[in-house]
Write a protein that binds this DNA or RNA. Structure first.
Length: 280
DNA sequence: AACCAGGTCTCGA
DNA sequence: TCGAGACCTGGT
């Protein structure tokens, strides 16, 4: 299919989704229980295992990226980051998978998050293709309670089971969640053990279409301090970012996040002599 | 080998 | 309402 402005590598490598892996030029993943493969060549996207409509919805091709860039380019710094990662799009994730995944993501790092989620899928999900598992439903997680230890989730295991139980019983209603506005959704989400300000913002942004949500993790906090001189409590920094970047603040956040990736970070003048602190 | 990570919880002021 | 500590585990 032909795509609007889009960069598949930047999008799948930006740390918003955890279940894609690259093999050669193909990306492999499971979305809403379907195994799919993707390959990009210029503005052509080769899709295997899903309809074009589904792909367009998933990658938010309905977002006008140029309009969003124009809107969030409030200063030179963000403009240059956008320029570096042009085509990166937010992804429209499934609400249950996204929320459960970000509960596991707390106080960890992307490689480990991927492993935890992979092992949860292997332990509780269905094998839909050889080696490819679906993300388990709340019921599937509750059924195999005894196996949780082998997923190495640490203290997040109780949060995940508790959340699965709330969703399964109907105490927490994902359909009701989807009808709420940004503030209401965040407030509702925070009633779940394991979901605080940051995870609630991730869920709002990545699965509830609240593009003004601006999750502030360590990287974003660092960027906001270094670039804008903003520090302090979560809500102080996040609300500053929402005011500064406007209604698409979540997009600005994702570009700053990928730019702060330590493995991509351009090293500034480490070759300058005389600054090493070699021992006596 | 320390330090750190897509933070949250609890508790005390 | 806010700040301080504790916290499973594994990556770097």
């Amino acid at each position: 299919m032909r795509t609007p402005l889009f960069d598949l590598d930047h999008t799948l490598d930006s740390g918003q989704v955890f279940r894609w892996r690259r093999e050669g030029e193909w990306w492999h993943g499971v979305v809403r229980g379907r195994y799919m493969r993707l390959r990009q060549d210029g503005d052509r996207l080769e899709v295997d295992g899903a309809s074009e409509d589904m792909v367009a919805h998933y990658f938010r091709f309905d977002d006008d990226l140029e309009e969003i860039y124009a809107d969030i380019s409030k200063d030179e710094r963000i403009a240059s980051v956008i320029d570096r990662f042009r085509g990166l799009r937010l992804i429209r994730q499934d609400i249950w998978e996204c929320s459960a995944s970000y509960i596991l993501a707390s106080y960890s790092n992307v490689p480990r998050i991927k492993k935890m989620i992979d092992s949860v899928c292997r332990t509780y999900g269905q094998e839909i293709e050889e080696g490819a598992f679906s993300f388990p439903t709340p019921e599937e997680i509750l059924e195999g309670e005894a196996d949780i230890a082998c997923c190495r989730l640490g203290y997040r295991a109780d949060w995940l089971r508790g959340y699965a139980s709330m969703v399964y019983s109907g105490e927490f209603d994902l359909y009701e969640l989807a009808t709420k506005d940004y503030r209401g959704a965040v407030e509702y989400l925070k009633s779940v053990k394991g979901i605080g300000d940051k995870v609630a913002d991730c869920i709002a942004l990545f699965s509830l279409d609240h593009l003004e949500a601006c999750p502030v993790d360590v990287r974003i906090a660092r960027a906001m301090r270094d670039i804008y001189g903003v520090t302090g409590s979560y809500n102080k920094v996040a609300s500053y970012a929402r005011r500064h970047f406007g209604r698409f603040a979540g997009y600005a956040q994702e570009y700053l996040y990928i730019a702060e990736d330590p493995s991509r970070k351009v090293r500034s003048c480490s070759c300058t002599p005389g600054t090493r602190s070699s021992g006596p």
